[in-house]
Design a protein around this nucleic acid. Sequence first.
DNA 1: CACGCCGATGGAAGCGGTTTCACGAACTCC
DNA 2: GGAGTTCGTGAAACCGCTTCCATCGGCGTG
Lengths: 342, 342
Amino acid sequence: MEAVSRTPATLDQVARAAGVSRATASRVFSGNSAVSQEARRAVERAATELGYVPNSAARSLAAGRSESVGVVVPEPGSRLFLDPVLPRLLRGIGEELSASGLQMVLFSPQSPADLQRLEQYLAGGHVDAVLLLTLHESDTLPSRLRARGIPTVFGGRPRGSIEVSFVDVDNQAGGRAATEHLIEQGRRVIAHISGPHGMHPAGDRLQGFREAMWNAALRSDLVEHADFGRDSGELAMERLLAESHRIDAVFAASDEMAAGAMWALQVLGRRVPDDVAVIGFDDSAVAAATQPPMSSVRQPIEDMGREMARLVLSLAATRDVGPRQMILGPELALRASTIGAG
Amino acid sequence: MEAVSRTPATLDQVARAAGVSRATASRVFSGNSAVSQEARRAVERAATELGYVPNSAARSLAAGRSESVGVVVPEPGSRLFLDPVLPRLLRGIGEELSASGLQMVLFSPQSPADLQRLEQYLAGGHVDAVLLLTLHESDTLPSRLRARGIPTVFGGRPRGSIEVSFVDVDNQAGGRAATEHLIEQGRRVIAHISGPHGMHPAGDRLQGFREAMWNAALRSDLVEHADFGRDSGELAMERLLAESHRIDAVFAASDEMAAGAMWALQVLGRRVPDDVAVIGFDDSAVAAATQPPMSSVRQPIEDMGREMARLVLSLAATRDVGPRQMILGPELALRASTIGAG
DNA sequence: CACGCCGATGGAAGCGGTTTCACGAACTCC
DNA sequence: GGAGTTCGTGAAACCGCTTCCATCGGCGTG
C-alpha cells in the first residue's frame, strides 16, 4: 500500500499518523539520538504506509549539510573521459563514499556556461565537499570553493598553486621502475616512447626514465613523442628503429603505444621479448591482450580514488586544517614481454 | 572585495545592504518578475560586495524545484561506461539541458546499497526529472519515481513494461541498412558477426540483417557471435571463412569486431574491399582508423541524448501526459571498405 | 476630478526538515 | 525518602528562500 495522494507525505503527516511529535519522527530518520522502541516502530510503520521519503532539500537546509559529495570530471569527449583511468577512479571514490553513507554526485561541465552554473551549484551548498578531476587552467572554481569553505581535493597535482590538497600517483617513480626493470633484465639500449610534449604525467614518466638510465650510466636519448594512441606508438617505434637498430628494449608511456610498438617490432622481424623487451604503462586490458602479454606499470588508481574520498572527508570533519598531499607509488605487472630470454 | 565572514551571506543581508526588502532581492535573482532598474542595480552591487551565492537547498525547498536533472548511468566498469556511446550521449543530454539553464547531475550506483541511497535521493526531490541509461532488471527505481510523480525517460527501450517514456535508436533499421548497402554493391554471400546472445541491440541488428537478406532472397545463415571486441571479431571471421570461403561481404555489429574481421581477412590473403567488403557499426574512431577506412552505421547518439532531455522537460512542463516513445533512425557512413571494385 | 489600473514593492506565510531546550517520569544513590 | 541522573519527548525556533497578497503612488480615462 503505497501513498495514494499526489503530493509526497511529509514528516509531519508521518508523525501525526504515528502519534508522536515531528521531533521524534525526525529522530527516527536521523538515526542517532535515542528513541523508544515503541515510538520508533510506530513511526516506521507510518512511514511505509504513507510512502514517506525525506525531502532532501529541506533536510540539507535545516541540517546545513547534504550528505553528498560532488565530483567534477572532465567534459565527455575529453581524453580522460574516454580512457580507462576514469572508471577506475570513480569506482574507488564511489566505494569509499558509499562506505560512509554518502552520495556521489558527478558533474561534467562542457561549456563555460556550464562551468558557471556548476560553480553556483557547488558553492550554493548542494554538496558537502568537492573532488576535482579536471584541471582547467583558468578555473576560478577552486578559489571560490575555498572562499566558501567547502573542502576540496584534487585528483592529480594541479599546475599552479601548492596551497591545495591533492592525491596523485607517482608517474616519475613509475617511469623509473619500468626502466630499472628493463635494466635488471640485462637490457642496455633502451628507448622510450613518451606522450605529448607538455603533458604532465608524460613528462614525469620521461623524467623517471632518464633518471634510471642516468643512474645506470646508459644513454637516454632514444626518446620519441607520440599521442598515447596505438598507431602513433607504432610510428614512434619505427622512427626509433631507424635511429638505432641495436635497441633491445622499449618503455612506452601507455599500453596503447606499447602495443603499437610491439606490432611494429614484429612486423620488422624483431622477436618480443627475445630481441626487444617491451613494457607499457597503465596495466590496462590492452596489456594483457597483446601477443605476448605485455608487462606494464600499474598505478593504484582505485586507491587514489579511495584516498581522495578519505582525504576530503577528513578535511570536512576537521575544519581549518591546511592543505594535505598524498602520492601513491606504482607497481609493476610483469608479463612475458620483458622476461624472456634477453 | 569578497566576503570576509566565514558564514555565507544570505539574501536577507543582501536585501538589507541594498536597502530593499527580501522579496525584491529575491526577484532580482529569480529574474522573471518586474523590478525597477534602480533596485536591481542596488541589489546586484550588494550581492557582489558580499559575495552572495544563493543557497540551493533553501531555494529548491521554497520553490519546489531544483533546476537540475538527474542522469543515472551504469556503474563504472560496465561495458557501456567504457564504450564510446556514453560520452556522446552525455554530451547530447548536457547540451540540451544546458540550453534550458538546467544542471545535469550524474549518478552511477555501483552496489545495491548505492542504488538504495540513490532511490532515496532522487525520490527525495533533489532533482526535477530523471534520465535512466541503466537497465538493471529488477530495478524498483522507475516505479518509485513514477509513484513520486517525477518525470522519467529511459535511454534505450527497457525490457519490461511499455508504460514508460523512452528514446531509442533503431538498431534493426541499422542492421537492415548496412546489409542492404552491401547487397546494392553487388555482394551476395554476406556474413554477419553478431554480439553476445541475448543482448538486445545485438539481437535487433541481427534481425535487420536477416530481414534484408530475406528480402533479397539470399541465405542468411552465415552468422557468428562474438563479444563486441576486436579479438573476438577476428576469431569469428576465421570461423566464418572456415564455413564458407566464398564470402564476399561481412557486416559486423560493432566497429571493433569489424576491425578484427578485416584483420583476419587480410592475414588470410583477402583484399578489402576487392574480395570482401566490410561494414561495422557505431561509426566510432576505430572505423576511420582502419586500413582501408571502414564503412559503418552511424547512430544519432547525440540526437538521442538531446531528445531524451527535450522529452523529459516536456513531461515536466505538462504534467500527467502518458508515456511517449521516440525511435531515431541510423545513417550510413560510407568509406572505402565497401565501395571499391566489388 | 474621481475612478480604475498597473507596475513596483514590502510583509508575511509557508516550504519540510533539524535541533535546542525544558520538562516530566522513572531510576539510582546515599 | 529526597536529591541528582538519565531518558524519551514535544514545543518552538530556526535554516534561507519563494511567492501570495495587500499596499501605494502615478497614470490614462470618461
